[in-house]
C-alpha cells in the first residue's frame, strides 16, 4: 500500500472507533457488540499505522501474497459473526413466541375477571 492509502485507512478506522463509542454513549448499540467493533477498529488502525505487522505475520504463516491473510481474517470474522447472529435470532424468536403465548393467556384471564 502507498503512504496515502495508509493514512486513509487509518483515518477510516479512527472514524469508525469514534462512531462506535458515540453509539454506545447514546445507548443505541449494546456494549457487548461495541467490544467486537472496537477490536476490529483497533486492529485496522494498527494495520494502517504499522503495515509491517501484517507483512510479518503473513511471512511467518507462509503466505506469499500479504493481502490474502487480510482477506482470510476478514472472511473468517464475518462468518463467525453471521453464525452468532443466527444463534441470537433463533433465541429471540423462541422468546418472542413464548411472550406471545403468555400475552394470550393473560388476556384470557383478564377477560374472565372483567
Amino acid at each position: 500500500m502507498s503512504g496515502g492509502a495508509h493514512v486513509l485507512v487509518g483515518l477510516l478506522a479512527l472514524g469508525a472507533l469514534l462512531v462506535v463509542v458515540r453509539l454506545v454513549r447514546l445507548q443505541v448499540l449494546k456494549a457487548k457488540y461495541s467490544i467486537l467493533w472496537l477490536t476490529v477498529g483497533a486492529a485496522l488502525a494498527v494495520a494502517a499505522a504499522a503495515p509491517g505487522v501484517l507483512d510479518w505475520a503473513a511471512e511467518r504463516l507462509g503466505i506469499g501474497y500479504q493481502p490474502t491473510l487480510f482477506l482470510l481474517l476478514a472472511i473468517g470474522f464475518l462468518l463467525l459473526l453471521a453464525m452468532h447472529f443466527s444463534y441470537e435470532l433463533s433465541r429471540m424468536e423462541r422468546r418472542i413466541r413464548t411472550l406471545a403465548e403468555e400475552l394470550a393467556l393473560l388476556r384470557r384471564d383478564a377477560e374472565r375477571k372483567g
Partner: peptide, 12 residues
C-alpha cells in the same frame, strides 16, 4: 377464544 398478538403459524 385465545387471541395471539400476531400470526405464529399452526404449530405455535
Amino acid at each position: 377464544c385465545l387471541s395471539l398478538p400476531f400470526n405464529l403459524g399452526i404449530g405455535g
